[in-house]
């Protein structure tokens, strides 16, 4: 296990900043529900930018997976399953037959380890643990119409089943195919995904998967510091790593970061993602909403009025001509 020792001074500062943003957030949430409701139609889309303010929590945590170290033992899967009280798996965690197919997180597993072909050496397959990347500006959260997701100051992106109505737009939006849905349940179906062991990290612990990894492939710490760690590793071992920290910039950056010896496509990471947060793609549209609300009534009102005016004029002219006759 690896853990970066926290610097008490920055800790203090970040706490202060946390408090500050908490207050501003509360201010933003007050205001009667009715006002929000009314404004909802017109679009209070400055909130879209409000999101931005909250995403940059300064001292937020993250994990760094060193893909070159992972040996595919699935200890992390087991630890996650136990730490989060998930149902017993169909195939035991020490069974490597699961690697025959590509798996993904499901309603019963927050994380899965997959095996990939090594382009450098056929006999040494690659492994990657898949879980939520806890994006800086999560697409899942931008998608949800009920605000069921929260990007916490600690970095974890959390989902609240009490709010969700199951539209599954968050699953459409997540660029990493992370959220899973328990379609089996008729009464209480919900989204399921990795919680970055929120309860543990909140009390100073580290995620169960990072803790369990026998080769120290997962480092938990402050995201900003993890980036430095990753840089240093890449610099000191240029033969071992390619010069790319996946998650540093992808879709605006993620809390979970990866370094690797081969291009990330070989691990099934999407390579076609923009650098800016996905919410940026919809901002132009949402920004146009208030414009439509103000311009349309004026425009169509004018058209209506002028056409009626012309009709009246014509009628009048017509009437006068009639009279002349």
């Amino acid at each position: 296990m690896d853990k970066i020792i926290k610097n008490p001074e920055t800790e203090e500062k970040s706490k202060q900043e946390k408090e500050d943003s908490k207050i501003s957030r509360r201010g933003f949430l007050t205001g009667s529900a009715a006002a929000i409701g009314g404004a909802a139609l017109v679009g209070t889309y400055k909130d879209a930018s409000a999101y931005k303010e909250f995403s940059g929590w300064p001292g937020r945590f993250g994990c760094l997976t060193d893909l070159t170290a992972c040996v595919g033992c699935r200890s992390c899967e087991k630890a996650c399953n136990e730490a989060n009280n998930l149902p017993k798996p169909d195939v035991p965690f020490d069974d490597s037959s699961v690697f025959k197919e590509m798996r993904r997180p499901t309603a019963h597993a927050y994380t899965v380890v997959n095996q990939y072909k090594n382009p450098k050496d056929e006999n040494k397959p690659l492994y990657r643990k898949v879980q939520c990347n806890h994006c800086n500006e999560p697409a899942c959260a931008s998608a949800c119409p009920i605000h069921a997701y929260t990007k916490t100051p600690e970095g974890a992106v959390l989902y609240n089943p009490e709010k969700c109505f199951g539209c599954r737009y968050c699953m459409i939006a997540c660029p990493f195919y992370v959220p899973a849905y328990d379609y089996e349940s008729a009464l209480e179906p919900k989204i399921v995904k990795c919680v970055m062991c929120y309860a543990r990290i909140k009390t100073g612990g580290i995620p169960a998967c990072a803790d369990a990894c026998p080769v120290g492939a997962i480092t938990f710490g402050k995201r900003s510091e993890l980036i430095n760690v990753a840089r240093k590793k890449i610099m000191t071992n240029p033969d071992r790593y390619i010069n790319h920290i996946y998650g540093e910039h992808e879709v605006g950056g993620t809390s979970w970061l990866y370094i690797s010896g081969v291009p990330f496509e070989h691990y099934g990471f999407p390579a076609n993602l923009p650098k800016k947060p996905l919410i940026e793609e919809t901002k132009g549209f949402l920004g146009a909403v208030p414009v439509v609300f103000t311009v349309w009534p004026a425009l169509f009102g004018t058209i209506y009025a002028s056409l009626r005016h012309r009709e009246d004029m014509e009628k009048q002219k017509h009437g006068e001509e009639e009279e002349k006759k």
Partner: peptide, 27 residues
């Protein structure tokens, strides 16, 4: 298609995902 259709009114009362395009669609 909704997982919990009886919550269809949630975007109006329970939570406001004002940055969400689907929120706009719902309203």
């Amino acid at each position: 298609d909704l997982g919990r259709p009886w919550r269809i009114y949630y975007p109006m009362i329970i939570g406001f995902g004002t940055a969400s395009v689907l929120f706009l669609v719902a309203w």
